[in-house]
């Protein structure tokens, strides 16, 4: 409410920076990377996503929020076709274009797509191998085996994930010997080792304590200079803190998509307002 009052008393001569203008300015700077248009998605006979249209800009953090079962994770998993793993899942209508390539075209190489669109999962899932092997997993799949190249990638990825200093002396210990937050950052390092363009994060902090969460959020903020990040989160503070744009989903529909500040300060939809205020129901 106070936000509204403030906006009303703001003199018109002064550009209101909290409102729409910077958002528009931003989206002009960062061009659209992922373009979702009129997407309908089914699990068997259940329609999980209704007519979703959404443009995700490059090198920004876009957060998907909404109550459980609203379809936000489903949409995220459409972006690297992880939903293909579920037999009954199918895209019924609409397109998802990444750099103007429709990723649901039959001739798209899903393997290649997933190299370009990395993913970090809710539950940190390092392989029960050494830290080094976890990071080099993706490269080894591609046939890279030169030790010098692998060493270099391990260091670069671990530095990129702000984990290098903590693990550089025990690269050959099991990835599972790390703490929860470190494991999640290891998974992020593993994802950036294959040099993706987009990193999808499915509730990456939901199993972490606040300090570990803050570290991962810090990392997300650093990563966005190089990668486009899409993050699904239940934690509204997290969306507010680390995203540039926020999409609110409810019952498989996109209710509101705007600059994060707009979503959290003057959402235009009553449902969004109710959800971000924590009185949903």
């Amino acid at each position: 409410m106070s936000a509204h009052t403030l906006m009303e008393i703001t003199p018109t001569t002064f550009a209101p920076p909290i409102a729409d203008k910077p958002a528009q300015a931003d989206s002009e700077v960062h061009q659209t990377l992922i373009d979702i248009a009129n997407l309908d998605f089914f699990y068997g006979e259940t329609k999980a996503l209704h007519d979703i249209s959404l443009k995700i800009p490059e090198k920004e953090v876009t957060a998907f929020i909404g109550p459980s079962g609203c379809g936000k994770s489903t949409l995220l998993r459409c972006l690297n076709r992880m939903n293909d793993l579920i037999d009954i899942a199918r895209v019924d209508r609409g397109t998802i274009r990444i750099r103007d390539i429709d990723i649901y075209q039959p001739d798209v190489d899903v393997i290649e797509l997933r190299k370009r669109v990395g993913m970090v999962f809710q539950k940190s899932n390092p392989f029960p191998k050494s830290i080094y092997e976890n990071i080099t997993y993706g490269l080894r799949l591609q046939g890279v085996s030169a030790k010098s190249r692998l060493d270099e990638v391990v260091e670069r990825s671990l530095r990129g994930a702000a984990l290098w200093d903590e693990v550089k002396d025990r690269l050959h210990e099991s990835g599972l010997s790390l703490s929860g937050g470190q494991q999640q950052r290891l998974c992020i390092a593993r994802a950036i080792a294959v040099e993706p363009e987009i990193i999808l994060m499915d509730e990456p902090c939901s199993a972490l304590d606040p300090i570990a969460t803050a570290r991962v959020e810090e990392l997300i903020h650093e990563l966005k200079s190089k990668y486009t990040i899409v993050i699904v989160t239940h934690n509204m503070q997290q969306a507010a803190r680390c995203s540039d744009r926020t999409a609110f989903f409810y019952l498989g529909r996109l209710v509101e998509y705007a600059d994060t500040q707009t979503i959290f300060m003057k959402p235009s939809d009553a449902q969004t307002e109710a959800y971000v205020s924590g009185r949903f129901g």
């Binding site: 793993l85 190299k115 392989f127 799949l141």
Partner: peptide
């Protein structure tokens, strides 16, 4: 999932 997401 972790493996597939890395392009395996």
């Amino acid at each position: 999932e972790g493996s597939l997401a890395l392009g395996a």
